[in-house]
Computed example of a mutant assay.
Amino acid sequence: MSDTALESTRRRLTAKQADTVDRLGRAAVEILTRDGFSDLTVRRVAAEAGVGAATAYTYFSSKEHLVAEVFWRKLATASPALHDSDDAAGRVIDVLRHIALLVADEPQFAGAVTSALLGSDPDVEVLRLRIGRDIHDRLVAALGPDRDPDVIESLELLYAGALVRAGMGYGSYSDIADRLEKSARLILG
């Protein structure tokens, strides 16, 4: 993944600024784990990270933007799913499971990601598009050259729906990963 792919949605970052953004991201996850999304604020994250609130707001327009950015960075830096299967369905299932399990060990963060990505913040919109493109590209790579665009769109809708379902508490992210497998097999035959 190139450095430009991990640039902040609001500005290009120097090494020092990138470190500040990383500290803010780690602090956000710590607060989410401890106190949940409703108690998360950019000011609180800044204080936890030892950064001025004004500085934090130069990088993140809202708590939704901050959470979406942390998720984007986690997804963008995650190694691709290992494709152990020779068939397209198996490869797609590997991709969907891999993405779903990125946040399985952090249920508070995972729920916050769902809430954040549903927000209307323009900076979140940019990240939603990046995340969607990344997932799309992973699915295309898993399906191979003879892919049907309608199948890809169905798989994207499946993943988005599963993310919302898990974020609403209708199962753990591990359970959702299992359900994604069953649903993907139905779509792919």
Rank of each mutant, 00 (worst) to 15 (best):
E69G: 02
R23Y: 05
E30H: 05
F71S: 00
E48C: 05
M1D: 10
V95N: 02
W72E: 00
R44H: 12
A112N: 08
T9V: 15
E153A: 12
Q17P: 05
G119D: 12
D137Y: 07
F60A: 04
V140N: 02
A177I: 05
R23V: 02
G111N: 13
D84F: 12
L96Q: 03
D87P: 00
R185L: 13
A28H: 00
E153M: 11
D178N: 13
S120P: 05
L75C: 06
L129S: 10
Y57F: 15
D105H: 14
R43C: 05
D35S: 15
T33K: 08
L117N: 01
Y59M: 04
R23D: 07
S38E: 14
R26Y: 02
R165P: 00
E156N: 11
R147A: 12
R44T: 09
R179A: 14
V113M: 06
M168V: 13
V21R: 00
D22P: 01
R44I: 05
L40V: 01
R10N: 09
E156R: 15
K182Y: 11
V51S: 06
P107C: 11
L129N: 07
I135A: 03
V92P: 00
R130S: 07
V42Y: 01
Y59P: 02
K74I: 02
R179P: 05
R130C: 06
I31H: 01
T41E: 08
I135P: 00
V103L: 02
G90Y: 05
P149E: 15
G171S: 13
A5M: 10
T55I: 11
A18F: 05
I93R: 08
A116Y: 01
